[in-house]
Each structure stands twice: as structure tokens, then as C-alpha cells.
Computed example of a mutant assay.
Amino acid sequence: MKKTHSSAGPSQRMLRVGELVRHALAAMFARGEIEDEALRGAVVTVPEVRMTPDLKIANAYVMPLGGQHAEEIVEALNRHKKYIRGAIAPQINLKYAPEVRFFVDDTFEEAGKIDALLRSDRVRRDLDEDDSEQD
């Protein structure tokens, strides 16, 4: 009997294919293959690619080095997504190349907000109170 993973998160295959797509995109960006004014001189990292369960859509989260012009870069990549799909298809060796959709990766920004919150006086005061109660 086959198990379904509807609420369990991504399957091993989804993770493996996402990593293949991520590496193919990173290599393509490093070579500077896409001709677009918004991408000229930009160093774009691909921290994560999330695949849909049917492997037909690859949601690629990207961030330019330094975080400058992230929205414009994502718009430029989405303008060229058909070319990108065709260029990475031979490298990922699937029956069908997934449609690639680009999004700004905001995980670093979120981590910064959490870090700032944890360092705030209010949280520090609460933590100090917890420490004094344990003594």
C-alpha cells in the first residue's frame, strides 16, 4: 500500500529535484547567460527551490548579493522564465522540465527581525526575570 504525504511536507523526490534545479539555476546565473539590463552585474544566489508534488512547478527563491534591487531582478528572471526552463531542462534529466517561478527570498530578512527581537530590552528583561526565578 502506498503512503500519501499530503501533510508531511516535501517528499525525498521533491527535495532532490529541487536541489537539481537550484544547482542548474545557480550555474546558469554564475555564467551570466541571461541578457537583461536589470541583471547586468548582479550576483544572484539561489538559497532554495521548492517543487510542487507533481514536479511541474519549481518555485525558486533568489536574492541578489547585498539585497539591492531584489524585486527588479525577480521581475527580470520571470520575464525570461521560458528561456531559463529550456536552458536547465537538459541538466535536470526529467521527463518534463518544470515551469520555474521566481520569488524574492526573505528568509535572511526574517531571521534579522527575529534576532533583533531577541536582543530587544523587553525580551532581555523577561529572560533576566526567568533566570532570577530559577536561582
Rank of each mutant, 00 (worst) to 15 (best):
K2H: 08
T4G: 11
S6H: 13
S6M: 07
S6K: 08
R13H: 13
R13W: 12
R13L: 13
M14L: 09
M14F: 12
M14I: 15
L15G: 01
R16C: 00
R16P: 03
R16E: 12
L20M: 13
V21A: 02
R22E: 05
R22P: 04
R22N: 07
A24V: 06
A24H: 04
A24C: 09
A27Q: 13
M28F: 13
R31P: 06
R31H: 14
R31T: 07
G32I: 02
I34V: 15
I34R: 01
E35Y: 07
E35D: 15
D36S: 10
D36I: 14
A38I: 12
A38G: 15
L39T: 15
L39N: 14
L39D: 13
G41A: 13
V43N: 14
V46R: 08
V46E: 14
E48W: 08
R50A: 15
M51E: 09
P53I: 15
L55S: 12
L55V: 04
K56I: 02
A58D: 08
N59P: 11
P64L: 01
P64N: 01
G66F: 14
Q68C: 03
H69A: 15
E72Y: 08
V74R: 01
V74T: 12
A76Y: 09
A76C: 05
H80F: 05
K81F: 00
Y83Q: 12
R85N: 05
I88Y: 00
P90D: 12
P90A: 09
Q91E: 12
I92Y: 00
I92H: 00
L94W: 12
K95N: 03
Y96L: 12
A97L: 06
P98H: 00
E99V: 11
V104L: 03
D106R: 11
E110V: 00
E110N: 06
A111M: 09
G112L: 08
D115F: 04
D115V: 10
D115E: 13
L118P: 02
L118V: 03
L118M: 10
V123D: 06
R125Q: 11
D126G: 02
L127E: 08
D128S: 08
D128C: 00
D130C: 07
D131L: 07
D131F: 07
S132Q: 10
